[in-house]
Amino acid sequence: MTAAAFQVEAIASSRRKRQTRRRTVLIAATLLLVAMFVLALMLGQSFTPPGNVIRVLLGQDVPGASFTVGKLRLPRAVMSILAGLSFGLAGAAFQIMLRNPLASPDIIGISVGASAAAVFAIVVLSLNGPLVSLFAVLSGLGVALLIYGLSFRNGVAGTRLILVGIGVSAMLESFIAYTLSKAPAWNLQEAMRWLTGSVNGAQLSQALPLLLALLVFGGLLLSRSRDLEALRLGDDMAAALGTDVPRTRALVIFAAVGTIAVATAVTGPISFVAFLSGPIAARMVGAQGSLLIPAALVGAALVLIGDYVGQFLLPGRYPVGVITGALGAPYLIYLIIRVNRTGKSL
């Protein structure tokens, strides 16, 4: 009796410890992200003192700083954060739901699907603004259904889903290349945006729809985080724990695709952010609790850092997608090695 009570006490205390750690890490990560945001506003071709940055943010007219900070850096940084949050959140949701880190939307073709739709809407249909996003969301959902349907055969197996997704991405990338080649003014900048993602030319007016989508779809995802956690244990176990598995799955796919598609319609599919955020977040907070919010924070940090590195730390200027792509490539290979060696599909 006393031994049992002692055990209960030990388990409870270790759980409390992990929860404290999780809370500490989350708070630290948020503060770090805010610091990075401020730094991104201060640093660039020239240094802007923090005082001037704050005055610009408060709407005052500061000679020399109003344009660089207000028109160049602020939209870029805001867009990086919003897009990063979206990609990180949706990527982790997919990885948890399908119980496979390779099943992130940028590898199985969902981001490319949204990107293809955005290119089509902009180049062929001459649409802009929310209509492009709507198009991207619908086509992202369509692609998700297509991949799911194509890989369904006595249930969906992880490897098959990923390979089907890779095949679908190859087709969609061809479609993007085709559409761009029909565009009246084909240029490398635009092509890079739709193939690897970039926050070049970001405008603050694009931020509001992105923020709204993030709140609606992201909120929906977060409201399902308990069920997602249950899904991590396997479909049968989740059902036994009282989760309505098909309904959860449908809702999560809908919300995650929505999040990622709206972001993709603005920045393009920023390579590997969705893929990298979840695993990095898992390393940081451990297995305790939901990964969704940590992954979103990691995603935002990745895009902010990637964009800064691409702009200022390398000879020549690179769009952020190239940097995150080069970062993600070795990790992708490492993951394949680990998956094969342990013989599990993770």
Partner: peptide, 10 residues
């Protein structure tokens, strides 16, 4: 396929 994606980013 994964190697190909990775190399293509590089």
């Amino acid at each position: 396929a994964a190697t190909s994606i990775a190399l293509s980013s590089l």
